[in-house]
Write a protein that binds this DNA or RNA. Sequence first.
DNA 1: AACCTTACGTCAACACCATTGACGTGTAAA
DNA 2: TTTACACGTCAATGGTGTTGACGTAAGGTT
Lengths: 237, 237
Amino acid sequence: MSERVVPEGRRQRRRPTKQGAVLSERLIVETALRLIAQHGAEALSVRRLGAALGADPTALYRYFRNTDALLLAVADEIIGRAQEGWAATGDWRTDLRELGLRIHGCYQAYPQAAALAAHRTTGRPYETRAVERILGVLRSAGFPDPLAVRIYHAFVDQALAFAAQDAAALALPPAAREKEAEVWHAVYGRLSPETHPNVAATLPLLAADMRDSGYPFALELMLAAVAALRPEPSPEG
Amino acid sequence: MSERVVPEGRRQRRRPTKQGAVLSERLIVETALRLIAQHGAEALSVRRLGAALGADPTALYRYFRNTDALLLAVADEIIGRAQEGWAATGDWRTDLRELGLRIHGCYQAYPQAAALAAHRTTGRPYETRAVERILGVLRSAGFPDPLAVRIYHAFVDQALAFAAQDAAALALPPAAREKEAEVWHAVYGRLSPETHPNVAATLPLLAADMRDSGYPFALELMLAAVAALRPEPSPEG
DNA sequence: AACCTTACGTCAACACCATTGACGTGTAAA
DNA sequence: TTTACACGTCAATGGTGTTGACGTAAGGTT
């Protein structure tokens, strides 16, 4: 039997399911995204997705080789949404900042899916486009190829890593999230200044700062360091 | 029945299993770590752990409420190991670099526990000690408190985010991991230079660079940027 | 309009998973 | 020596992803 999946381009016979739904790769991805958004990452199972689609669960295997392939498609969809309407301005620093914040922000919109998919290389169209664009920004800013590639790698991994990290926090059940925020007062606030002088000295600052994501500042630090690596310092400064 | 777990302190009747093993919380945690290290991420299941212990799988539930509780115990052990033998040298840059690489590296050794626990604030002793130490490095390097706190936040989040990110990649089933590595040749290698000129121009560099973690370079970039923020450069250098 | 070919939705089955309730044995305290 | 109960074991439940076989209806061909 070997291949039961037919690539999306060659599909011809769209037969409605018993319950009347007409399946497609796109419909399945969107349904999966909705399922995850509404009922959490653990709600995504083949059987539940089948039920949500109004089809036999195993019908999925006509569209995706396995659940991992489906997950990659979901990840790519998110990457696509992150780039919607973006265009290069010509200023590399502005462009990278914008892309980083967009990627991070878009994953936050689907925390449960992000936690599942942010660490995958999909090799799908939206992802390849993002890679192409970021490399384009760096190369036309004058970074030599080996350096551009290293910076690309650090930049992308940082954006995705923070996205997954912050998404995981958002994806916690509200009670657990609340409790985790309290730890800074409940535990760190009670540490003795003798054993933990530095924590004690900075506690109010700490408790306030840790409420938000560390990404924007980390991104600025990276951009500043990258600027210093640029071969010919532009008049900008 | 409700509580089938007896806290470690109150245990009295240690009965050997059919296969002769005498169970304990400590033995279970260590066996779990060994299982993970030796047979990969997917090897940790209740059944396999039971087999490795020489006990009925469900005997675990006498020691941990569920698998999540077990994983947290395992994670706690890892945090401890990350700081084992570390001491400040007095050079803030060396110290931060060392701590960052240690945290990242230690999580890598136990990927799936890392992926699960790296985004939680535990408030437990090993964690508070790490916070205290990092803040200490920054403050005694002369950073004013508000800046020290922001840097601390970015530094820690980046270390943990990358740790979780890279751990998640390691925790994939071997088949998926293999495939992901191949994507750079199989997909990106076949993109047309007309639609993806920047990818085409840098492909060998890309494929080579993406095999390793982006963290070490990202860390260096952050340290460089932080150095530039330092108020009064000391004679040290 | 009749015919084929086959895509694809469906069904049944498999092997694995975490978790629970009931049970009885053997240990350690009294 | 007795007794209580801790805890290892077993059976069972309901979940998971995935595969192979099957038949139907959709489309292209004639």
